[in-house]
Design a protein around this nucleic acid. Structure first.
Lengths: 125, 125
DNA sequence: CCATCTGGTTACGTCAGGGTGCCTATGTCC
DNA sequence: GGACATAGGCACCCTGACGTAACCAGATGG
């Protein structure tokens, strides 16, 4: 294996891996998707919390903050008495929503393939 | 998204999540891709090992076995003196290769978006 | 006076993914 | 004889993602 060979395509920072990174957080893609699809690109923390069954407050905040740091959303704080914060999808965020929709769409179109997969996590029968 | 079943769409076993499951192993998608793209759908363990810089023997075997269990590849063992084993992509595996190519393709086409992402893992400067 | 609602943080604990290293078994090569 | 290559098993470890629960702050309302 020499340098310059196709093997170098698989470095840590290659496109494929960076794409996958986006899906490595469990909630990121769902937040992005929900934000875009059901919340019209902007929502308050509480709304998001209630829109994503199963997520904990901590994970929401944490993921949202990471997303902000990544430039996927904008965090706006209103200095009101009961704290109010909302998160808005950035144009960059929307680019990734496209990808996510692509992926989710594939999932819907290929549900049979997904069904054919012998899952190793839910099998009890 | 139509109202009526919003929250239920996000159950553990919804299509979106199952799709993401495929990418949750770090090596699965790369193995699939390499197997299809560079190895013509079939390769011996050693070849795969050398084709995926950074993977450890354990992870290769483990991932490959998981993939076999999932029905993505077929494992063939030749009872030869120096053990020989090869893995072949199944039709199901090829379905998923399509998805992976889709994803990787997006990554290549949108490298600028990936670049625009402020990574929180590599920045030290 | 206390509960509550808001958004967050912090401490704490669990668990699985991932990685390293060592071990087997046989046959060939030095 | 000893090293190496083949494919893989197994023990051990480490990290970090994830989750839970408690707590903070300030105003409101009962």
């Amino acid at each position: 294996m020499q340098p310059g060979s196709p093997d170098n395509e698989w470095r840590e920072d290659c496109a494929p891996r960076r794409v996958l990174d986006l899906f490595s957080s469990k909630w990121t893609s769902m937040i992005l998707h929900v934000l875009d699809t059901r919340l019209d690109g902007c929502a308050r923390t509480g709304v998001l919390l209630r829109s994503l069954p199963g997520i904990s407050k901590k994970m929401l905040t944490q993921t949202l903050r990471d997303m902000e740091a990544s430039g996927l959303v904008i965090r706006r704080v209103y200095g009101t008495v009961p704290p109010a914060v909302d998160y808005t999808l950035t144009p960059l965020g929307k680019r990734f929503v496209e990808l996510i929709d692509l992926l989710y769409g594939w999932g819907r179109d290929n549900a049979d393939a997904l069904d054919a997969l012998k899952a190793k996590k839910g099998e009890g029968a």
